[in-house]
Amino acid sequence: MAYNQDNDYLMIVKVDNQCNIKLININQCNYVNSLADNLKSSSSSSSSPSPSSSSCSLTPSKQLDNKQSELINLIRSQLKLWINSLGVQSAEAQNLKEPITCHTRFIQGSFRSNSPLKHNDSIYFLVHHQSVNHQPSTTITNNDNSSDENNRIQLNAIGLIRVGFRNLFLQQSEQLVNVNRCFSILDFYITRQRQGLGKLLISCVLKDQTININKCAFDRPTSALLSFLGKHFNLGSPQKQHNRFVIYDGFFS
């Protein structure tokens, strides 16, 4: 389901509208463990450094901290491109006239700049982490000028979910109920279809939010998404609401 090579794998990146970044593990394919393994293997395969070189070299823990910092800076520099590009692709897949997810609206927390209602949404990206042999346009390179391919990293966002909390009026039996801070899935798109990546991304979001999927409200889901939820999460009989959200059995229990 996830890439399993040492330097070629998938990772989850969570970003809020304050541009705070959190890296989330996918099973054992997480960035920190992979870097630690790389540092361990490279140190065991290399010859013992001379006293002069060891005095100016970083310890593995410091190397790890530096690489994490560089990775986060690289992600931050790509956020606008990732959000706008995947937002447009999502809109096209849903036959929408304009994207419902774009960088400007995400940062400002509303669909319109003059809206008094602001939302603190988050976006989870599914990112392909890949080491490359040549110097790409967006890379991380260590300061030691090493030619090791492990020091050059390329990131490619291949999916996103935008989530947030909404105050919704939802139908419960014969009543219209006001649900405060309802966890809502607002946009969802994966560039690589039928590879298990969509299920992987949603599962990681649910785990990070510590919520069951039948407690989520889905904003204007397409028929393809409803079919996907039924196939991979056993969600049947969607309950369509007047506000175009959809909930499932167990939402109010």
Results as ranks from 00 to 15, higher is better:
residue 200 L to H: 02
residue 171 Q to T: 12
residue 70 E to Y: 06
residue 218 F to A: 11
residue 37 D to Y: 07
residue 146 S to I: 05
residue 203 S to F: 04
residue 28 Q to R: 05
residue 16 D to S: 10
residue 3 Y to G: 14
residue 177 V to H: 05
residue 39 L to Q: 11
residue 246 V to K: 02
residue 118 K to V: 12
residue 54 S to Y: 04
residue 248 Y to L: 06
residue 114 N to C: 09
residue 36 A to M: 10
residue 136 P to D: 06
residue 7 N to S: 08
residue 99 P to R: 13
residue 90 S to M: 03
residue 30 N to L: 02
residue 45 S to C: 11
residue 136 P to N: 09
residue 180 N to R: 11
residue 233 F to V: 05
residue 49 P to C: 06
residue 208 D to I: 04
residue 7 N to H: 08
residue 216 C to R: 07
residue 64 L to R: 03
residue 134 H to D: 12
residue 204 C to W: 00
residue 133 N to D: 11
residue 126 L to C: 04
residue 223 S to E: 11
residue 120 N to I: 10
residue 162 R to N: 02
residue 185 I to V: 15
residue 59 T to R: 07
residue 191 T to F: 04
residue 129 H to F: 15
residue 100 I to N: 08
residue 244 R to Y: 08
residue 84 N to Y: 02
residue 119 H to G: 04
residue 30 N to A: 00
residue 44 S to D: 08
residue 17 N to F: 00
residue 33 N to P: 00
residue 10 L to H: 14
residue 74 L to I: 03
residue 98 E to Y: 09
residue 242 H to S: 14
residue 10 L to M: 06
residue 238 P to Q: 09
residue 124 Y to P: 03
residue 165 F to A: 13
residue 156 N to M: 11
residue 133 N to C: 06
residue 196 G to P: 04
residue 162 R to S: 07
residue 248 Y to D: 06
residue 170 L to D: 06
residue 132 V to R: 11
residue 35 L to H: 07
residue 30 N to E: 08
residue 218 F to L: 11
residue 23 L to S: 07
residue 151 N to R: 12
residue 90 S to Q: 14
residue 139 T to C: 10
residue 92 E to F: 07
residue 73 N to F: 04
residue 204 C to I: 05
residue 217 A to C: 11
residue 114 N to G: 00
residue 252 F to S: 00
residue 31 Y to L: 14
residue 89 Q to G: 00
residue 121 D to G: 05
residue 185 I to P: 10
residue 111 F to R: 13
residue 217 A to Q: 03
residue 137 S to H: 06
residue 17 N to G: 05
residue 72 I to Y: 02
residue 90 S to R: 07
residue 159 G to D: 08
residue 195 Q to V: 08
residue 67 K to W: 02
residue 108 Q to N: 13
residue 107 I to E: 01
residue 25 N to D: 13
residue 189 Y to H: 15
residue 3 Y to N: 12
residue 85 S to D: 13
residue 70 E to I: 10
residue 127 V to S: 03
residue 86 L to Y: 09
residue 137 S to K: 15
